[in-house]
């Protein structure tokens, strides 16, 4: 229960921090362009943003060009002859194999490189699905209010009251054949209520805002009120949250794979799965766990930094 209150508080804080994101009564005639241009001006000078952006760019580039970068097939047991588990012996780093082989004699470096794809896939798709689901529910609740709002928010609160990883594990466990798809679904469903609650709070604030009142006074119909006047003004904290959710999804997905609820494919490497396999031999070969864990942490950090810098840039308190 404490967890729920904290989660709600955090979401509401986020909401409050940008509820009035663009209203600055003291502003006379500023020279800047749109709100985005304004945010960009502040992002440009933020080291946090640049660190995050560089990490993410490198990671995305690696994922895209993984085939070219990876020197070997990640599934082939190329170094099996040098691998003697019984004698605690793994293939050491050598020309063409910068990180050596894993417990089965596959090229560790190639596995990491190709594994980035799965991680990117999970991060992006889980966030997209969570975002879309939250967008629909949050818009419904915020636009209609009343009974629709009550019903949607009850559902959201129930989902939020379950610790997110536990919920993701339960959902993932429902699938007979665990796969990357089941991981994505489990991880994204957990994020839907977070997005929904955040957006709903923003929409409710917008509903009472002056410019929506002014639009209503001009007879603007309901659909454009919601989609042109309320929704676009509600999105900035949700977009910030989406960036953070990429990081959360990557970690959650890794956790599911680690627990054996992810892809069972021997051919397609995945960082969480690699970590899970390394765990059995962690005393003897800590580096097998170190590399995938390090990658997960760095990438998650990249998205977190980006998200935090975006929030700073969009925060009304930081406007001049």
């Amino acid at each position: 229960m404490v967890g729920l209150t904290k989660k709600k508080e955090r979401i509401d804080q986020l909401a409050a921090s940008s509820a009035t994101a663009v209203v600055d009564p003291t502003d006379v005639e500023s020279s800047g362009g749109s709100i985005l241009a304004d945010a960009w001006r502040r992002l440009r000078v933020s080291p946090v943003f640049w660190i995050g952006a560089v990490i993410i760019s490198v990671f995305v580039l690696i994922a895209i060009f993984a085939d070219v970068i990876a020197p070997h097939d990640p599934g082939e047991l190329l170094l099996r002859s040098q691998t003697r588990l019984a004698r605690n012996q793994l293939a050491p780093p050598q020309p063409g194999f910068p990180l050596g082989g894993d417990q089965l004699g596959r090229d560790l470096f190639s596995r990491l490189v190709i594994g980035s794809r799965q991680t990117l896939l999970v991060g992006v798709f889980a966030t997209l699905i969570g975002f879309t689901g939250g967008l629909i529910l949050g818009t419904l609740a915020g636009a209609f209010g009343g009974k629709v709002d009550t019903v949607v928010m009850r559902l959201v609160d129930v989902l939020l009251s379950i610790p997110s990883l536990l919920l993701a594990i339960s959902i993932a466990a429902l699938f007979a054949n665990p796969s990357q798809t089941s991981v994505i679904i489990a991880v994204s469903v957990v994020q839907i209520p977070v997005f929904a609650r955040l957006l709903r709070g923003q929409m409710l604030a917008q509903r009472e805002s002056d410019h929506v009142l002014a639009a209503r006074a001009l007879g603007v119909k309901r659909a454009p009120i919601v989609f042109r006047h309320m929704l676009p003004n509600s999105l900035s904290p949700v977009i910030v949250q989406a960036t953070l959710v990429v990081a959360i999804s990557i970690i959650d997905a890794a956790a599911l794979s680690f627990l054996g609820l992810g892809s069972q494919s021997v051919k397609v490497p995945e960082w969480g799965q690699m970590l899970g396999e390394a765990q059995q031999k962690i005393d003897s070969y800590p580096h097998l766990a170190f590399w995938p864990a390090g990658c997960i942490i760095v990438v998650a950090l990249g998205f977190t930094l980006l998200g935090e810098s975006l929030r700073e840039a969009l925060d009304p308190k930081n406007r001049r």
Partner: peptide, 23 residues
Amino acid sequence: RDRRGRDLAMIFQDPLSSLNPVI
């Protein structure tokens, strides 16, 4: 709703917050 803006219209106190900032 059809009449608002057509037959009778309104002007508010705070011009900045009465405009939609993103369009």
